[in-house]
C-alpha cells in the first residue's frame, strides 16, 4: 500500500491566469474566501497586507503579482490558500481553487525551457495528467525572503531620506 501511495503527489490545484498550478496538499492549512485585508506599508507590491485568520495575523501574497501577471480584481471565485510552512503562516491569493488531485509522480517532467526564456526558479516541473497540464510550484522559492527583504529595504531607504 505504502508503495502505491508514494507514487502519487496529492496536490491542491488552483487557477492563475487561466493556467492550472499544483502544490502538495500537506502544506495547505485552509482555503478561505477573501477576508478584509489590512495593507502593510513599506512592503513589496506582491504583499497585499495581513488578515486576521482566527486570531493569527497572517500575511497575504498575491501570486498574480508575485509571478508578474496582470493584476485582476478579486471576485467571488478568488480564494486565499493558507500555507503553513517552516513556522510561517502565509496566505496565497489565487484566482480560484477547486480540486485536489493525485498526480502520478511518473507524469512529472522538468520545466520545458524555450530558447531565450528566463529560468524561473519557483517552478519545480510540469505534470501532464488526464488531459490537463499542471505547473508544480516550489513553496520555498515563492516565499524566499531574499526578494522580500531586497524590496523592503529599498522602500525603507526611499522613506527614510
Amino acid at each position: 500500500m505504502a508503495k502505491v501511495e508514494s507514487e502519487f503527489v496529492k496536490s491542491i490545484i488552483f487557477q492563475l491566469n487561466n493556467e492550472e498550478y499544483a502544490m502538495p496538499v500537506d502544506l495547505v492549512g485552509a482555503i478561505e474566501r477573501m477576508l478584509p485585508i489590512t495593507r502593510v506599508p513599506g512592503t513589496p507590491d506582491f504583499i497585499k497586507g495581513v488578515l486576521n485568520l482566527r486570531g493569527v495575523v497572517t500575511p497575504l501574497l498575491d501570486l498574480r503579482i508575485r509571478f508578474g501577471f496582470e493584476p485582476k480584481d478579486y471576485s467571488d471565485e478568488t480564494r486565499t490558500i493558507i500555507i503553513q510552512h517552516e513556522n510561517m503562516d502565509v496566505g496565497l491569493i489565487v484566482d480560484a481553487a477547486h480540486d485536489v488531485i493525485d498526480i502520478p509522480k511518473a507524469s512529472i517532467e522538468p520545466t520545458p525551457e524555450a530558447v531565450g526564456s528566463v529560468h524561473i526558479d519557483y517552478i519545480d516541473g510540469v505534470a501532464k495528467y488526464d488531459e490537463r497540464l499542471f505547473i508544480l510550484l516550489n513553496i520555498d522559492k515563492i516565499l524566499s525572503k531574499e526578494l522580500l527583504e531586497q524590496e523592503t529595504t529599498a522602500r525603507k531607504e526611499k522613506l527614510v531620506q
Binding site: 502593510v40 495581513v50 525603507k156
Partner: peptide, 11 residues
Amino acid sequence: LGNYLSNVFAI
C-alpha cells in the same frame, strides 16, 4: 506580523 514579514519599517 508573523515570521514571513519580520522586518517592516516603522511597524
